[in-house]
Design a binder for these strands. Structure first.
Length: 575
RNA sequence: CGGGGCGUAGCGCAGCCCGGUAGCGCGCCUGCUUUGGGAGCAGGAUGUCGGAGGUUCAAAUCCUCUCGCCCCGACCA
């Protein structure tokens, strides 16, 4: 295509609104434009990238036995009420009414719709397994959209849902999708890692997130150097062998700690290290039960672990009024001593502590030389803190390393959560009703494009991998002579006839402008035709990513670029 | 939702404190010259100063309200 016929509004300067490199470059290279917070228009160039990713996804999903369908973007409230999620999804679910005052929501995901379809249409075990996917726009009313396509409110997602006869079948489908995802992200030219992820209330360990490694990632992953263990920090188990301490008990006493609410403030005030402190977190569950959670001062509570441990869906820190009622002190001074009206859950690390500091259940008061067992009782010790880099890996003794990642895909074994709630059953060979075992599998497509830019760029612009580049070749003529024009035209035609995607910059611009736009847009190869080279009988080819240049006679260009593109389109080896 | 910041020409910004008829750079238009890494010269166009209300002889500037956007945080006691 010619630039005069494609709408590519590039920006010379960085837009003020963009913070991270992918967002900046997507705006500057003319891939997207913002419509409102978290809402973007995909411009022609951006859409070409999206379509390429979609094509790879379609191929690999079909390869993995999934078939494409398309569900509506609006979901009726009844289905969500039936699954129970109408009540729990919260403000992220954008609800609306139609002209008849019927309630709907914009679909943030489609388990309800697909499960409804399944229960209406699938009768027999003979129809299983079934795996359907769609590529469709989702809407989640994010609390804080940011970073362009990285966290938008409206975004394009591939979501797939599998239905199986039994657990084994479901695991087979899960594995197929896992494998498909590895192929997809590899083909997109991404450095990524599949990590164990949270399964919420369902249990088991069948959930993996596909993380693109990038410093701007919003997720933290922990892994060990052998590569045998990788997980979201939210999930990582803490290996612990804390023995009860044998340090002699000291008598407990009260100290004044005016205005010291945080661990840091207490430590500064008393001149002690955070690991001598035990913080008492008061949590509320959905049933409004309050529980006290004890965590060593230098550790962080892991709410996902606590939630799973308690078997509750919702867990939030207690509001100030509740804290006042339960601990008879304002927020910041809760402690376990005398806290008899709520259960006390403690992290394993507490077991090995003696003579520590806790809140005094009184304003501006802390207690020193407190000891569990003597001064208060702990109901349960459990692994409820966040794992930290440097700690031992659960798979061995190698220390854990941490990295930032962008979650681009998630595979999840759902089990019977939705089939149970919505009655998605089939008849087995014995004629008995059985619940279908489900799995679901998502990929954020815009986010994948953004993550790709995070990994493939330099100070001049994007350096697309061939498989998802908007164009293969950026063709630039820098001379206006008849000869140069004719040569460019001929080359353009022959490239197009060979099914190579060429963007021909036919604008009446200076060479520098064209070079800069080409580097910004980031087609993998640039071909430069000018009188300078033509008088020597050559045309220049530049590899965008490496800057490597070759001077070739016109007739060698097509074979050269065909070969180069073929070599760089093939499956990259996963890291 | 809490805190901070910003809305002035297509884009990036200054002007606001201290009120007095709106500016810079890039882009855009015209002409000439240039033409292999964002050209030079000359000329030109462009603004509901986010919106509403108020104070004032006079408001981009001060006050009130409102809308939008960006960043940080969202309870770790």
């Amino acid at each position: 295509m010619r630039t005069s016929q494609v709408f590519i509004p590039t920006l010379r300067e960085d837009p003020g609104e963009a913070e991270i490199v992918s967002h900046r470059l997507m705006l500057r290279a003319g891939l997207i434009r913002k419509v409102a917070s978290g809402l973007y228009t995909y411009l022609p160039l951006g859409l070409r990238v999206i379509r390429k990713i979609e094509r790879i996804i379609r191929e690999e999903m079909e390869n993995g036995g999934a078939q494409e369908l398309l569900m509506p973007i609006l979901s009726p409230a009844e289905l969500w009420q039936e699954s129970g999620r109408w009540g729990v999804y919260g403000k992220e679910l954008l609800r609306c009414r139609d002209r008849h005052e019927r309630e709907f929501c914009l679909g943030p995901t489609h388990e309800e719709i697909i499960t409804d379809l399944f229960r209406r249409e699938v009768r027999s075990y003979r129809q299983l397994p079934l795996n359907c996917f769609q590529i469709q726009t989702k809407f989640r009313d994010e609390i804080r959209p940011r970073f362009g396509l990285m966290r938008g409110r409206e975004f394009i997602m591939k979501d797939a849902y599998s239905f199986d006869l039994d657990e084994e079948g479901a695991k087979r489908n899960y594995q197929k999708m896992y494998d498909a995802y590895e192929r997809i992200f590899t083909r997109c030219g991404l450095q990524f890692r599949a990590v164990q992820a949270d399964n919420g209330m369902i249990g088991g360990n069948m959930s993996h997130e596909f993380m693109v490694l990038a410093d701007t990632g919003e997720e933290t992953i922990l892994y060990d150097e052998h590569g045998t263990f990788a997980t979201n920090v939210e999930l990582a188990e803490v290996q612990t062998s804390e023995q009860e301490s044998t340090v002699p008990y000291q008598p407990q006493y009260r100290v004044q700690t005016p205005g010291t609410k945080t661990v840091e403030e207490v430590c500064n005030y008393l001149g002690v290290a955070p690991n001598q402190l035990v913080k008492t977190l008061l949590y509320q569950t959905e049933a409004n039960n309050v529980i006290a959670v004890l965590i060593r001062g230098d550790h962080e509570a892991n709410e996902i672990k606590i939630r799973r441990m308690l078997g509750v869906a919702e867990l939030t820190l207690a509001d100030p009024e509740t804290v006042q009622t339960v601990s008879s002190a304002p927020v910041g001074f809760a402690g376990p001593v005398g806290l008899t009206n709520v259960p006390i859950l403690a992290d394993h690390a507490i077991r090995g502590m003696r003579n520590f500091i806790v809140g005094g259940n009184d304003q501006d008061i802390h207690l020193r030389d407190v000891n569990w067992g003597r001064d208060f009782q702990i109901e349960t010790f459990a692994d409820i803190r966040k794992a930290q880099a440097g700690g031992p890996s659960p798979s061995g003794d190698a220390p854990l390393l941490s990295a930032k990642g962008i979650e681009v895909g998630h595979v999840f074994l759902l089990g019977t959560k939705y089939s149970q709630a919505m009655g998605a059953t089939y008849l087995d060979p014995q004629g008995k009703d059985r619940l279908a075992i489900m799995g679901c599998y998502g990929i954020g497509i815009g986010r994948t494009a953004a993550a790709c830019i995070e990994q493939h760029h330099d100070h001049r612009g994007i350096t697309w991998p061939v498989p998802i580049a908007p164009f293969h070749i950026h063709l630039i003529s820098v001379s206006a002579s008849d000869n140069a024009l004719k040569t460019t035209q001929d080359l353009y035609t022959s490239l197009v006839q060979s099914d190579i995607e060429v963007l021909w910059d036919d604008r009446d611009e200076r060479a520098g402008v064209k070079f800069n736009d080409a580097d910004l847009i980031g087609a993998p190869l640039q071909i430069v035709i000018g009188d300078k080279g033509l008088t020597k009988g050559t045309i220049d080819v530049k590899v965008r990513k490496t800057g490597e240049r070759s001077q070739l006679p016109p007739q060698d260009i097509l074979p050269f670029v065909s070969k180069w593109l073929a070599e760089h389109s093939s499956l990259l080896r996963p890291q």
